[in-house]
Amino acid sequence: MAEKVLEIRDLHVTFDTPSGPLEAVRGVDLDVSAGELLGVVGESGSGKSVSFLATMGLLPARARVTGSVLLAGEQLIGASAKQMRSVRGRLLSMIFQDPLSALNPVHRIGDQISEMLRSHQNLSARDADKRAVELLDIVGIPQPGDRARQYPHEFSGGMRQRVVIAIAIANNPKVLIADEPTTALDVTVQAQILEVIERVQERFGTAVVLITHDLGVIARVADRVNVMYAGRNVEQGTIESLFDHPSHPYTRGLLASLPRPGKQRLKPITGFPPNMLNPPSGCAFHTRCEYAADICKGEMPPLVGFGDLQTACVRAKELPKSESFV
């Protein structure tokens, strides 16, 4: 296996809200290896975005973050603001869900890219502009020279997301975090954006973390998957093993709710995601799990190796074998 570029251990994030402390992330462990594409799935509110915003050091000051995040061996939790600034955009970059609002409306596209370049590389303004045009070309924007001089409002949503990707990869980072990069876009555009991300990953060997709701997308592009529920990761493994024999009941539920050829009836998971102000004790999934037993309400189950998967379910060994979703 390739070297690990990003190692997250026991990450916790708590927000102080008017209704009391809200622990959005409750002990996440996760590894990303060089050059791989890791998918992260989970329902809305499961803490996907918050985990990686914490990694980037982009959470508001009233968020309390503890645990350990090692990026190429460098500890990011508790790092100084200056240290984080040097990491952000150089080793680690992130693209966000809504391309329409992610770009500054009053600056030219080219300038927004070269700003990223010049903040980490010793480039002349002219070289940075030239490189910015190259980057636009790489992410598949036609007539990049002219487009660089335009403003965001002159670009379509898909085109803007390409620009955001161009900014993110400008300094050839080790890890690129893509937080639902296609959710806000049309279906046809979605596929194009995914292609751009895959191309970038192959060309530069960037490790990519792809956060999404869409297991179909994961199945197509990811090497490994990490499933999150209520601020914890409940299962992880390679794409093949996870789709072939998911072990955690939540993963099974997610897969069973996926539309597949030859199967008419979808089986959505019943119930609602828990209120994170007051999450259920023990395995947070027990309020909705069809295999739940008393023992599930006791302690939070840790991730343990289970075959070729890592699963956080106390009853994993006793459960009936799941059908295959390959």
Binding site: M56, L58, S86, V87, R90, S93, N104, M116, I167
Partner: peptide, 20 residues
Amino acid sequence: DYMRTARSKGISERRVLIKH
């Protein structure tokens, strides 16, 4: 959002504030 994008570039807080 664009302020978050600006921050994610790793530029100084002052520059984020003044330029963006």
